[in-house]
Simulated scan of single mutants.
Amino acid sequence: MIGPETIKVKRDTGETVVVDLVGIETPQAATNATPSLFEGVPDSKQGRQMLGKYHERALSYTKSQLRQQVVTVATAPQVGKTDESHLRAYVYIGDFMYNTDLLRIGSARVTDSEFSKRPLFMQKMQTAQQKGYGIWSTNQTR
Rank of each mutant, 00 (worst) to 15 (best):
P4G: 10
K8G: 04
K8E: 05
V9W: 00
R11W: 05
E15G: 00
T16N: 08
V17C: 04
V18D: 02
V22G: 07
V22E: 05
N32P: 00
A33N: 03
T34R: 13
L37W: 07
E39T: 06
G40E: 11
S44H: 01
K45Q: 09
L51Q: 12
Y54V: 08
H55C: 09
R57L: 14
R57T: 06
A58M: 11
T62I: 10
R67D: 15
Q68M: 12
Q69N: 06
V71I: 04
T75L: 02
A76E: 11
P77C: 09
V79G: 11
Y90Q: 02
V91F: 06
D95Q: 06
M97L: 07
M97T: 01
N99A: 03
R104M: 14
R104G: 10
G106P: 00
S107T: 00
V110A: 08
V110D: 05
T111P: 05
S113M: 11
E114P: 04
F115P: 04
K117D: 10
K117V: 07
F121G: 09
K124C: 14
A128Q: 02
Q129T: 10
Q129N: 04
G134M: 03
W136H: 11
W136V: 08
W136F: 15
T138D: 02
N139Y: 10
T141D: 02
